[in-house]
C-alpha cells in the first residue's frame, strides 16, 4: 500500500514540503537575494506586511473581490450555458466546442487577446465605442476599468469550466421530478429555483470550493493584463508576493507574504470545506 504512494509522496515532499519549510525559514531572516548575510530578524517581515497599507487596502480587497466576483459571475454564466447546452439541437457539438475553447487555451493567451480587444486605439471595443459615439477609454490606465477587464477575462476563461461540469450534473439528474413539475404547470423559472438548483447543490458546492481556491491564487491573467498596475492598484496576492521577491529583490519579505497568503486561503478554504461538506460529500 505504501509502495503505491511512495513515488508520489517523495516528489511531494521534495518539491512542496521542503520548499515551504525553506521559505518559512527565509521569512524570518533578512534575506536579500544574492546577499549572503542572512541575519535572523524574527517577525519583522510579517509585521511589515501586516502594516503595509498597499497589502491591507489594495492587495487583500482586490484578491477577495476578484475571487468573489469571478466565481459568482462564472457560476451564473455556467448555469446559463449548461441550460443552453442541455437540449438536443443540430450543432450542439459545435456550440459545446465553441464554449469549451476559452477554457482550453492558455490563460496567458486569453489575457493577451483581451488586451488586444480592449486596446484603446485599435481594439474592437474602441472601434465600437467610436461608432456608438463615445470617446476612447484608456481601459488599462485606471484602477477600476483595468480591474473590470481582469474580472471579465477570468470569467471568460472559467465560465466554460462551470458550464461543462454543471451540464454533466444536469444530465445525471432524474427526469421524474421535472415531468411532475411540467404536469403541475410550473413555469421555467420556478422549476429552476425549486428543482434544478436544490438538486444541483452538491455539484455547485464542489465547483465553488475548487474554483475559489484557484481564483485566490490568480497570477497569469493579472500579470499579462495589468502587471498589477497602474501604480500597483490591481495587484492581487500572488502578484504582490512576486513583486516583493523578484522586483524588490527581498526574498525574506516575499516569503513572509507567501506564508501569510497561504495561511489566509487555508483558513478560508477550511471554512468553505465545512460549509460545502454540509451540502455535499466533498471528500467522497
Amino acid at each position: 500500500m505504501l509502495l503505491l504512494i511512495a513515488p508520489a509522496g517523495i516528489v511531494l515532499v521534495l518539491f512542496q514540503i521542503v520548499p515551504i519549510v525553506f521559505g518559512a525559514n527565509a521569512s524570518f531572516r533578512d534575506w536579500q537575494l544574492f546577499n549572503p548575510a542572512q541575519t535572523w530578524v524574527g517577525l519583522k517581515h510579517y509585521l511589515y506586511i501586516l502594516g503595509d497599507s498597499t497589502f491591507l487596502t489594495i492587495v487583500l480587497p482586490n484578491t477577495f473581490l476578484l475571487t468573489f466576483l469571478s466565481v459568482t459571475l462564472s457560476l451564473i454564466g455556467g448555469l446559463a450555458l449548461a441550460h443552453y447546452l442541455h437540449r438536443n439541437f443540430a450543432g450542439q457539438w459545435l456550440m459545446q466546442t465553441i464554449i469549451l475553447l476559452p477554457q482550453m487555451i492558455a490563460p496567458v493567451i486569453g489575457a493577451m487577446m483581451m488586451r488586444w480587444v480592449f486596446n484603446d486605439q485599435f481594439g474592437v471595443v474602441a472601434a465600437f465605442l467610436d461608432w456608438v459615439g463615445f470617446g476612447p477609454i484608456s481601459w488599462l490606465a485606471q484602477r477600476w476599468p483595468s480591474f473590470f477587464i481582469v474580472i471579465l477575462t477570468d470569467v471568460w476563461i472559467w465560465t466554460p469550466w462551470f458550464a461543462l461540469i454543471l451540464l454533466a450534473g444536469l444530465r445525471s439528474l432524474p427526469r421524474e421530478p421535472f415531468e411532475a413539475a411540467q404536469i403541475d404547470a410550473a413555469g421555467a423559472w420556478r422549476t429552476f429555483t425549486h428543482l434544478t438548483l436544490p438538486m444541483l447543490r452538491p455539484v455547485i458546492a464542489v465547483c465553488v470550493l475548487i474554483r475559489s481556491i484557484d481564483a485566490f491564487r490568480t497570477f497569469d491573467v493579472v500579470w499579462i493584463l495589468t502587471g498589477g498596475g497602474p501604480a500597483r492598484s490591481t495587484e492581487v496576492f500572488s502578484i504582490y508576493t512576486y513583486v516583493e521577491t523578484f522586483v524588490n529583490l527581498d526574498f525574506g519579505r516575499g516569503s513572509a507574504a507567501a506564508i501569510i497568503g497561504a495561511l489566509i486561503i487555508l483558513v478560508v478554504a477550511g471554512a468553505m470545506y465545512k460549509v460545502a461538506g454540509r451540502v455535499a460529500d466533498v471528500a467522497r
Binding site: 512542496q16 525553506f22 485566490f216 497570477f219 500572488s238 512576486y242 516569503s255 487555508l266
Partner: peptide, 9 residues
C-alpha cells in the same frame, strides 16, 4: 496552498 507560496522558495 497557492502556487506562489512554494514555487517562490
Amino acid at each position: 496552498v497557492p502556487y506562489i507560496s512554494w514555487v517562490l522558495p
